[in-house]
């Protein structure tokens, strides 16, 4: 096995394992940490698919931005519900014990499993040539040039969109009393 394939397998195991633990746990903080690991592995996979621009952007945005945003969301909506009040005697140890509720497991798990099997079958038996190797090299220069020439308008539009969304988010999150 070539080292690239081994690196791919390690990263895929990291992604699948942390996604599964995100599914399994009921603790919101543990899920946020598992999502962090998933995003790290995904950035590695982007590098292996020769999309290093996207990998760096992904790391900056998800690990640096979205995860902090989620942690702030968890912190600001931290509710002391029944599950926390039952063991309120040891508050210091139960502060990070943010248990969330779940619906019954059977239906979502079977739907998810059937989706996975269906997609797996579709991708494996699909009519397109799916055994092409991922070829090429880092296309950093081409992507930079393309974003400033051919895709300049969508790029600027995305920037304005981001600005509008962030201003809107701060306005919505403001205390309107």
């Amino acid at each position: 096995m070539s080292p690239l394939v081994i690196a791919f397998l390690v990263l895929a195991l990291l992604i699948c394992g942390s996604a599964l633990s995100m599914l399994w746990t009921k603790n919101l903080l543990h899920a946020a940490l598992a999502m962090f690991l998933t995003m790290l592995g995904l950035a590695g996979l982007y590098v292996l698919a020769y999309a290093d621009v996207l990998a760096v952007a992904h790391l900056l945005v998800y690990v640096g931005g979205v995860l902090i945003l989620i942690l702030f969301g968890i912190m600001l909506t931290n509710q002391t519900n029944q599950t926390n009040q039952t063991n309120q005697t040891d508050t210091a140890s139960s502060k990070n014990h943010l248990m969330t509720r779940e619906s019954s497991r059977l239906l979502p798990l079977s739907i998810g499993l059937s989706f996975f099997l269906g997609l797996f079958w579709l991708f494996t038996k699909g009519p397109w040539m799916n055994n092409l190797p991922v070829t090429g090299d880092s296309k950093l220069k081409e992507v930079g040039l393309g974003l400033l020439t051919e895709y300049a308008f969508p790029f600027e539009l995305a920037g304005v969109f981001l600005l509008i969304a962030l201003i809107g988010a701060t306005f919505v999150a403001k205390n309107h009393d």
């Binding site: 739907i111 998810g112 989706f115």
Partner: peptide, 9 residues
């Protein structure tokens, strides 16, 4: 496909 199914679940 695995990530999609996990996210959906």
């Amino acid at each position: 496909a695995f990530l999609f199914a996990t996210g959906l679940t």
